[in-house]
Design a protein around this nucleic acid. Structure first.
Lengths: 175, 175
DNA sequence: AATATAGTCAAGCATGCTTGACTATATCCG
DNA sequence: CGGATATAGTCAAGCATGCTTGACTATATT
């Protein structure tokens, strides 16, 4: 027999293992965090697969995450690293790949002999536009399933969530 | 002198590079996919950090993602691998870690001398509950910022999105 | 001249997988 | 029964990804 449960009254569990089972069940329904995580991974995988299938370029999301930080007139490596919050060597590797892909190029910075500007090549601009089109296509498909209203709501909520998460790196709540 | 951003012969309408700039600008506002990705990563990092800070156990989300698949009475390694869609060796590594943490144990399967059942230890059940409480706490904080309504909407939308992504692994669009 | 900064090269590490080879047990069938 | 074969799990190695740190060169700044 399990330890005497307090049937009528306590908020205590009927039995520990029953309680545990309930909790597990709840966990299976997946927290928002876990849902986000799985959605993000699947989305990323499928988007990357599409780009590679269609363009033949094996660009990954780590590469494309660089794009929004590259100014049209070119941006220094160190500045990119600062904006992205990683080491300049990390950016150097990404830029190296993108250079191999022919998407960006390094040109000397006229203002500083040590520096180089990372900027899109002509071809890179084209593939960038193609990639964005592909991504929009993908998201349109998703929107068809979710509906425009929910898609907008999702977008807005994620923006707010991101702001919260970026503002609040620690654990301010407790203690 | 400034980099010759575009040749002197002026493009007729809004220049290609202006168009490109617009596109980039749009990309900076981040697609849903990119937003999801960044939110997921931050959420994961912060959740993992909290668990480790409070419980001292360096469990990662790859470990916890195993939990929903472990039945209360125990589950075979191979079955876990099947449910998770990875190799049995991959699950073996996760289970090995969790065994070191004292969270799960391997007991012989009475029905099959080759098999073992992976199940939670007593302590594991406790830390599982603690972890879930922590996670709920975290999500409650998020809910405070987003509001209950948007949180529910987010949850529901993500569920649908997940279903879509899991149903549709390929690229059905391109014929 | 001293020092700081931009970038590069090389190595290393953590994570989360994979594949291949192997042991022990189960099951099927002639 | 016994041999062929399938299955559960383990051990070991390897790989891709996305970072890191350390050491270094070349140029700028003071």
């Amino acid at each position: 027999m399990p330890p005497p449960s307090s049937p009528a009254h306590a908020p205590v569990m009927s039995s520990p293992s029953q309680d545990f089972r309930d909790q597990l069940e709840r966990a299976k329904r997946a927290s928002v965090a876990q849902l986000l995580f799985r959605c993000a991974r699947l989305l990323d995988e499928q988007a990357v697969a599409r780009v590679r299938t269609r363009s033949g370029v094996s660009m990954r999301s780590s590469h494309t995450s660089l794009f929004p930080h590259i100014d049209l007139e070119g941006t220094r490596l160190t500045e990119l690293a600062r904006r992205m919050g990683v080491s300049k060597q990390a950016v150097g590797q990404l830029v190296g790949d993108l250079e191999d892909f022919g998407v960006v190029e390094r040109v000397p910075d006229p203002d500083d002999g040590r520096a180089k500007l990372i900027r899109f090549t002509h071809a890179g601009q084209r593939s960038m536009l193609d990639g964005l089109a592909l991504l929009r296509e993908f998201e349109d498909e998703i929107e068809q399933h979710l509906g425009a209203r929910r898609m907008r709501a999702l977008h807005g909520t994620l923006l707010d969530l991101l702001a919260l998460l970026e503002a609040d790196p620690g654990d301010p709540a407790s203690s």
